[in-house]
Computed example of a mutant assay.
Amino acid sequence: MAIELPKDLRQQAIASIERYFAENMEERIGNVAAGALLGFFLEEIGPAIYNKGVLDVQERLQTRVSEIDLEVHEDEFQYWRRFEKARRGKS
């Protein structure tokens, strides 16, 4: 699965790469080279980051699913207990 960025995010990422080179490297990088570098990162490193994000979400969902019984649990056969408690309260 190829990781694609929407056009506006891709442009922002390219501008960020250009700025990084301008401020931190001895050479500037052009728009085309920055786009190629971004493409390389998306293809080579992007899947590792994406997969980590998916794993994080799976872990959170599994935790939530395992706790759902605590949130929605109802004790069974409570009618008579409530009935007896209400009867004692009237006496």
Rank of each mutant, 00 (worst) to 15 (best):
G35F: 01
V65W: 07
R28W: 14
F21I: 11
I49Y: 12
L70C: 04
E71T: 02
A33H: 10
F83W: 06
E43D: 15
L37G: 13
E84R: 00
T63Y: 14
V65A: 09
G53D: 00
F83I: 00
L37S: 14
S66V: 01
P47T: 08
E71S: 02
L55H: 14
F77H: 06
R19K: 15
K52H: 08
G30C: 09
V72Q: 09
I49Q: 10
A86L: 05
G30A: 09
N51M: 10
T63D: 13
E43S: 14
F83N: 00
K52D: 07
G89F: 03
E18I: 15
N51G: 04
E76S: 04
A22L: 09
A34T: 05
I17M: 08
E59K: 15
V72D: 07
M25F: 13
L61T: 00
K52F: 05
Y79H: 02
R60G: 07
E23V: 10
E71M: 05
E67L: 09
R87V: 01
E44P: 06
V65Y: 08
L61Y: 05
G35S: 00
E71H: 01
L55T: 15
G35C: 01
R87F: 05
M25D: 15
F40C: 12
Q62T: 07
G46Q: 02
G46A: 03
E43N: 14
E27W: 15
Q78S: 07
A48L: 15
Q78F: 07
A34K: 02
D75E: 12
V54E: 01
K52M: 08
A48D: 15
L70H: 07
E71N: 04
A34G: 04
E44M: 12
V32G: 08
F77N: 07
V54F: 03
E67T: 05
H73T: 07
Y79K: 06
A36C: 08
N24G: 04
V32W: 08
E43T: 13
K52T: 09
Y50V: 10
D69M: 02
A86T: 03
K85D: 02
A86K: 10
S16A: 15
D75A: 10
A36K: 11
E76F: 05
E74M: 09
S16Q: 14
A86P: 00
E67C: 09
Y79C: 01
